[in-house]
């Protein structure tokens, strides 16, 4: 069976009031494992954590269903003045995001640090 894991981290450098909540995705995100990502987003949103950075360094595959999860939550997150940003994608994973037009809808960064800076710049 395909394997997929989400783990959470927080980035709270000194002087920054708005924490960035980092989700590390690992493994194979397909129709079967999609509910895990859904739960992860639900958890953060329930805790009113809206600055969400998804680090895709260890993500080996993402399917359309997986991308759909991002679509499902983006509105609520942005309505609460947060954002979902993505970083550290492998070229293969980026290609799928790109094919389905996601770079027009989400900010995708090469590196986690850049994304965090973007979040900080906002505050």
């Amino acid at each position: 069976m395909s394997d997929f894991k989400v783990s959470f981290r927080e980035n709270s450098p000194q002087g920054v009031s708005n924490k960035v909540h980092i989700m590390d995705l690992k493994g194979y995100l397909d129709a079967h494992t999609t509910p895990h990502l859904e739960e992860a987003f639900e958890k953060l949103i329930a805790e009113k954590k809206y600055n969400i950075l998804v680090n895709c360094r260890d993500l080996s595959y993402i399917s359309s269903a997986g991308l759909g999860v991002f679509m499902a939550f983006i509105e609520e997150v942005r309505m609460n003045k947060g954002d979902i940003k993505l970083s550290n994608m492998s070229p293969k994973v980026f290609n799928i995001f790109d094919l389905l037009g996601f770079p027009m809808l989400y900010e995708i960064f090469k590196d986690e640090g850049e994304a965090i800076k973007k979040f900080e710049a906002k505050t």
Partner: peptide, 13 residues
Amino acid sequence: LFGFTLMGHIGAN
């Protein structure tokens, strides 16, 4: 699952 695939594939929510 159908909904997620739909949203992901067509980029609509």
